[in-house]
Every structure is written in C-alpha cells, then in structure tokens.
C-alpha cells in the first residue's frame, strides 16, 4: 500500500500494492475518481468522464 496525494483536494489516497496503470482509485475525502497514469513514480490524474458507449 502506498499513499499519494489527491490531485484535486490534496488529501491522502491509498494505492493498493498491486496497483495497475489505468486503474481507477477513489479519493475518500473529495470523492474524485482518479486514474493511475504512472507507477514509477506514481502519478494520478482525474479520471475521464463517463462516455455513452462505456460499459459491458
């Protein structure tokens, strides 16, 4: 588990040990959805908005 700063509110976001590039993590403080865009070093960006053709 690694702690990173939320890019929206700067609160601490816990990344799981097996975090994947492209994985979505939630900031429990501000509720933002963040996408993991870097692993070494860790980087977070706001996740893209939902598109109409997303899903199963």
């Amino acid at each position: 588990m690694t702690d990173e700063a939320c890019i929206v509110c700067d609160a601490t976001v816990a990344l799981p040990a097996d975090v994947e590039l492209g994985e979505i993590v939630d900031c429990l403080t501000c509720g933002s959805e963040l996408e993991v865009t870097g692993i070494d070093p860790y980087a977070l960006e706001e996740a893209p908005e939902l598109e109409e053709d997303w899903g199963e």
Partner: peptide
C-alpha cells in the same frame, strides 16, 4: 486491450 482498468481486468 484496455483503457480504464476495472476490478474485472485486474
């Protein structure tokens, strides 16, 4: 092939 990684992909 992927974009966002869901729990399912993981």
């Amino acid at each position: 092939l992927h974009s966002r990684i869901r729990r399912d992909e993981k």
